[in-house]
Design a protein around this nucleic acid. Sequence first.
DNA 1: TGTACATCAGTGAACGCGCGTTCACTGATGTAC
DNA 2: TGTACATCAGTGAACGCGCGTTCACTGATGTAC
Lengths: 231, 231
Amino acid sequence: MSAASLRARVRTEMIEEIKATARKRLAADGAGLSLRGVARDMGIVASALYRYFPSRDDLLTVLILESYESLGNAAARAAEARPTGDQRGRWLAVCTAVRDWATANPSEYGLLYGSPIPGYTAPRDTIAPAATVVLLLADIAADAESAGLLRPAPLATPLPNSVRGDLRILIDEQQSGLPEEVLDRVFLGWTQLFGLVTFEIFGRLDGTITAVGDYFEHQMNLIADLIGLPA
Amino acid sequence: MSAASLRARVRTEMIEEIKATARKRLAADGAGLSLRGVARDMGIVASALYRYFPSRDDLLTVLILESYESLGNAAARAAEARPTGDQRGRWLAVCTAVRDWATANPSEYGLLYGSPIPGYTAPRDTIAPAATVVLLLADIAADAESAGLLRPAPLATPLPNSVRGDLRILIDEQQSGLPEEVLDRVFLGWTQLFGLVTFEIFGRLDGTITAVGDYFEHQMNLIADLIGLPA
DNA sequence: TGTACATCAGTGAACGCGCGTTCACTGATGTAC
DNA sequence: TGTACATCAGTGAACGCGCGTTCACTGATGTAC
């Protein structure tokens, strides 16, 4: 390996160390990430960080992007660990993976799904990776649908046309043949999943539910019933 | 009115003005509320605020408490505006009131349901008022239940015993005669409501659903179907 | 009604802290001949 | 292999800003006689 690439390798390691330290500080300070704090933890002078990141916001953006990636990978791996035919198992696996990831990385979860950070506006690039989980969920439903195994719970409320149109556009974008009614319920599940995880992570469930793990699995099963995934 | 009570009245007005200004600043800065910022907006010196609030955290606590109260009142008023017999109408009214309140006061909503504020720990008193909305929802379901009008959608997943126990405790505390299965679904609706509002307020729906209002009402109707509120 | 005193709101300076970012610099490491 | 030069990482001081909180103070307002 040439000398040039050695320098490059050290540089890469340094960038990794900065990100790792920043993630740790995020855990301590919430979203109020400070460059000086990161530098302090690394035993380095704050200005040295500017060799690696042009500004605090750029570091934040990288952290956000990688967090989406990390969450998305965790969910995807959980889905892949189960046979394609076991759609309910995959559904629950993805939901559980999201919850586990959030529990293991609460501050990164807050970064992605908490209040917007004051003085920081997320660039465009952070929008696409945010969709990974909901796409996974939709894929699972699509598998069950195309296998003719989907038995959606019959509910009286019809899909309004405006919403049908929005869903149609998304379906066409993904070129999945999903009926609008199914995607509608997948979205309901998506909201439920992140709503419940957010409640749990931010402590909004304290004093009500103690068997949080059981409760989570139960709720995700109810939604799977609603969508009609085979048991 | 005596002179003493006049001074007291001026003091009360001042406190109100501080809180109002703080709420406006919250809108600009997110949760990073600063006393100096509030004082600046009021054309007053920062130290003067200490005549009215012993510390920044106390001001924050008051704002949080009053926000819960404001949200709770909005929801309660919406429910009362409809006849007791119209349980679905009341359900939707409460949900819509929550959404409207959140849309009108996004930063206060973030204060209540967003990421925890770095360096601030909410005192005990903030826990009880947080329950108002879910209690309202449970009351509506209880009305339908005791009138024998509840037709819950049949879903296969049974209630795990651990969760049943948690729900039992809550039911006994409230002395509502609600079956555990019903409260279970009320909770699902509660999570869905705040999950969806959070998604909308924090911009997580951008680029997917455009007919947000219709979508919201639709989802809340689906949940009402699930609980089995009469149409 | 008038005066002496007490209460209280608001001032302004100060303390000690933290922050992001710039900039000229030192010294080590890598490159070219 | 040895030397001259270029590249780059990290330093430390500085700028200009913001923050919460304390404290002695000035004046105005209220109270008691």
